[in-house]
Design a protein around this nucleic acid. Structure first.
Lengths: 123, 123
DNA sequence: GTCGTTGCAAAGCGTTTGCAGCCTA
DNA sequence: TAGGCTGCAAACGCTTTGCAACGAC
C-alpha cells in the first residue's frame, strides 16, 4: 500500500464516518458517493491492503458475510440486529469466561455475539 | 421429507457416527462410503430438509463454513481448537449477558465461541 | 515517466435450482 | 403407479484475478 488514491481515501473515510462495521457492499455504496464509478474489486483489494497494514479489523459473525471496522478500538463485542441487519459495538464482557472452559483446555480468545433488535427497530 | 432413501440414511448415519459437527464436504465424503455417486446437491437438499424437520442444528462459527450436528443437545456453545480445527461443545453460559446489552436494545439470543487449544493438543 | 492502482470482465468457489429419469411407499 | 427424490449441469452471489489503461508521486 504505497499510494493514497481517491478511492482509498473514500474507503477509509466511509469506514471512519460509519462508526460501525460495514460489509463490502455497504462500503462500496458509501464510498461511491465520493468516487463515482468505484468498482467492487477495488473495495476488496483495498480492504485486503488496509487489513494487512493494520488499519482495519475483520468482524466475522456466524453465518454472515464479513464486515470491517477501524482497528484500535480495544476489546469489544457485537450486537446484530435481526430487523435492520446492522451490527453495533458492545462494551464489556460477560462474567467469568474461564469458568466454563473445559478442564485441560487452553483458552486463548473468545468471540461473543448478541442477537435481537436495536433501539431504532424496537421502537 | 417423506421418503427414507439410501442417500438420506447415509447422511443421517454419517452425522450420528461423527460425533462432532461436519461440513457439507466432510459429510459428502463420509456418506459416499455407503452411497457411491452421491451428489453434493443431494447433501445440501437433505441438510435443508433435516434442518427443517429439526433433526439437525447448524453450527456457524465466524469465518468458518457452516457445520451440522444432531439436534437435541440443549443450550450450549462451542470451543474451536486452533490446532486440530475440531469443534467441541461447552456447557453453561458466562455471567450476566443482559448487563452488557445497550440501552433500548432487545436481546433475543446470543452466540459464544471459545478459541484456543483442546486438551489433546495442549498436552 | 514509472509502476502501483483502477475498472471491467472473466474466473473461482460454495450453494441453489431446473430438469428428466429413478425408486420408495 | 405417483410423485418425492436423485444426479447432473447450469445458475447464482460473493470474492478474486487477468489485463490494459490510468494517475499519484
Amino acid at each position: 500500500m504505497q499510494r493514497d488514491t481517491r478511492q482509498r481515501k473514500a474507503i477509509r473515510q466511509a469506514l471512519t464516518e460509519a462508526g460501525h462495521p460495514l460489509s463490502p457492499k455497504e462500503l462500496l455504496e458509501a464510498a461511491r458517493e465520493q468516487v463515482k464509478g468505484l468498482g467492487i474489486a477495488t473495495v476488496y483489494r483495498n480492504l485486503k491492503a488496509l487489513h494487512e497494514d493494520g488499519w482495519i479489523t475483520t468482524v466475522e459473525l456466524p453465518g454472515e458475510p464479513p464486515r470491517y471496522e477501524l482497528s484500535g478500538k480495544g476489546h469489544h463485542h457485537h450486537f446484530h440486529c435481526r430487523a435492520c441487519d446492522r451490527v453495533y459495538e458492545v462494551e464489556g464482557c460477560p462474567g467469568d469466561i474461564k469458568a466454563i472452559t473445559p478442564q485441560g483446555f487452553e483458552l486463548e480468545d473468545h468471540e461473543f455475539v448478541l442477537y435481537g433488535r436495536c433501539d431504532l427497530c424496537a421502537a
